[in-house]
Design a protein around this nucleic acid. Structure first.
Length: 284
DNA sequence: ACCTCGACCTGGGCGC
DNA sequence: TGCGCCCAGGTCGAGG
């Protein structure tokens, strides 16, 4: 669900609407979501918002918050004295208040509140000292990240030649290439004509190069469309991403392949529902 | 090194 | 109407 493009769109929404005043107060309704002390943020200005792979980072003056939305996390903004309405939230039900049973914490600024909602409570907020962020174990082990300078063909090739694992499993592994999840792995494999079970090291060089190229393409096209909203994912202002309608294979089980017309198959690979065209993506 | 499974959670959708 | 079951998937840790 929230993969690199969705987190990037959330980041851009927060950058755009970022409050310029210090935090007035914080609220935590669900303790397990937060590691560290959210109240430390009180009095601090949110100076910057950044992203690393699927992690969102809120940079305050003295502390940083490291967020992961996991599957159903939503970061939303609301103005306390204005009527609140999200036309679409999880499962497309309208929400008339930012705080309901799925809202786990709030950060209040003057005239603006930031809330974290998460139906399945898998997401995490970590409140860190500035110096803890750089060497955070979750960040240091991330593999090369598409759409950054670190994403280079020699590194990508080396990583793929090192493993005989199924390419689907390898691309889902955040320590190899970071930021991809189930949706965009399926999309990238289709675009490069690779079977999800293809052993990584045995991929012909031309196809490996193609895979290297289509990954950032698939991701940046998704960002352009505001991300992929399947059910839960929304922007901080409550709008939805429209990339679902552009997906080539994910969620298209039984529908005709856009290239050859053969019905898209769905099988479990690497413990994930995996969509592919058995004609266009053959094992080599 | 790699694989599989369970855990974490909730709600939708299914069969009966 | 409702119960029980399975599914959705990001990440981690256990065990083979």
């Amino acid at each position: 669900m929230p993969e690199l493009p969705e987190v990037e769109v959330v980041k851009r929404g927060l950058v755009q609407l970022r409050p310029q005043t210090p935090v007035l107060s914080t609220q935590v309704w669900t303790d397990k979501i937060v590691q560290g002390n959210l109240a430390l943020l009180q009095g601090q200005v949110l100076e910057q918002v950044s992203r690393r792979a699927k992690y969102l980072i809120l940079h305050f003056e003295k502390n940083d918050c490291l967020l992961h939305l996991r599957m159903t996390g939503q970061v939303i903004l609301s103005q306390p004295n204005t009527h609140f309405s999200l036309p679409f939230t999880y499962y497309q039900k309208p929400l008339e208040t930012p705080v309901d049973k799925h809202t786990h914490l709030g950060v209040h600024f003057e005239g603006l509140s930031l809330y974290y909602r998460d139906m399945r409570k898998f997401g995490r907020w970590e409140v860190l000292d500035k110096k803890e962020l750089e060497n955070h174990p979750s960040l240091v082990k991330l593999g090369i990240e598409p759409l950054t300078e670190a994403y280079q063909w020699p590194l990508f090739k080396r990583a793929l030649l090192k493993s005989r694992r199924a390419i689907k499993a390898l691309l889902l592994d955040q320590t190899v290439v970071s930021g991809l999840g189930n949706i965009y792995v399926d999309e990238a494999l289709f675009r490069s004509g690779l079977h999800p079970l293809q052993s990584s090291a045995t991929i012909p060089m031309a196809k490996m190069k193609r895979l290297f190229e289509v990954i950032p393409m698939a991701l940046s096209e998704a960002i352009e469309a505001g991300g992929t909203t399947l059910k839960d994912y929304i922007h901080p202002d409550g709008t939805r991403g429209s990339h679902k309608e552009n997906l080539l294979v994910y969620g298209r089980k039984g529908a005709p392949c856009y290239t050859c017309g053969h019905p898209i198959e769905k099988r479990v690979v690497a413990q994930r529902g995996t969509h592919f065209c058995a004609v266009c993506q053959v094992l080599i």
